[in-house]
Amino acid sequence: MTDTLEHLDTESVVNTAIDMPWSTIVWDDPVNLMTYVSYVFRSYFGYPREEAERLMLRVHQEGRAIVATGNREAMERHAEAMHGYGLQATVSKAAP
């Protein structure tokens, strides 16, 4: 019984670590032009125009959007780049 539970726990911890990547979130800012935000998403992430506009609109309408997911270092690099462009970005563990 105990052994089985311990085994399950270990597995779930490993799975959680793998299944919960990190994300870079861009937050709405009343200052930045919508055309600018969309252009940044396309130029930096290489998103097609449609995807960049969808993300930009989500930021604008919902206050935030996840613009990338992956390992923590990569998400910090993206956040740093967004700050370089003057966008408000944060890094967090993706919701389970």
Binding site: V31, A79, H83, G84, T90, S92
Partner: peptide, 25 residues
């Protein structure tokens, strides 16, 4: 506004992020 907090809920991670990124930003 120019150098936002990347980890609003994690003081230590926020400080580390600032330490590694601030100068180049």
């Amino acid at each position: 506004r120019l150098l936002p907090n990347a980890y609003p809920d994690d003081v230590t991670a926020a400080q580390d992020f600032t330490r590694y990124t601030r100068d180049s930003l």
